[in-house]
Amino acid sequence: MKKLIVITLLLILGFYLMSTFISVPFGAERIAGVKDYYLKQSPETLKVSNVVTAIVVSFRGFDTLGEVTVLFLASTALGSILYRRRTHHSGLNPQREAVVSSTLVRTGAKVLFPMIILLGAYVFVHGHLTPGGGFQGGAIIATGFLLILISYRKFFINHNVLTWVEALAGTTFVLIGIGGFIFANQNNFLENFLPEGTLNNLISGGVVGIIYIAVGFKVGAEITGILDTLLTIKEAGLNPDEN
């Protein structure tokens, strides 16, 4: 019965959404909006070839700050929701630890890990030239660490280092923002205060590249922290209540 009601409601919702979206046919030219400015300004004023990056980092850079914060928040909230082991692999299930991964995977992980990290670095350094950027690069780096974490169950990620990377990268982002406040022409938060360079060059876009690098480090550290927390949840037993 409940299912029927839900399905009926959903169909009504779907009908109305569809009728709304029919008014903007797929692929047809849209109402002139901000996108035309963006497509013009990004290569001309900002010298960033990837317009999506320009929007994400400069035009709507505040969103990105919020987004990084969301990930930071998620990793903090995860830490407060779940207990992490304090010391090196205590509280892990010994049975699971006994199932070592195969020699091949371990050797492969050793060889591929540096390449994956390099790929991640490539993606976030070239955020303003090619598809990708800080988030994607950070996610790739975190995936590299994931490979190591699942191949070597005893691998111990140093949370001190993660904390430092995370904090410094986040601080860099905000400080670049405040730098725009102090050095740039119009004294605006996150405003570009470096020379723009030339289009399609590694050194272009002013602060955009630097911000994306900071974002990459931060996202990488945060997602690695999330994965490590999840992978090393204590097997059983919660700490007694603290009210």
């Binding site: 914060t69 909230a77 407060s80 929701i81 919660l238 700490n239 009210n243």
Partner: peptide
Amino acid sequence: VFIEITAISSYGLTAFYKGR
């Protein structure tokens, strides 16, 4: 974005006490 920030931090804060 800001609504999501408030929302996620509230999820974390609501579940802050393990005993309840």
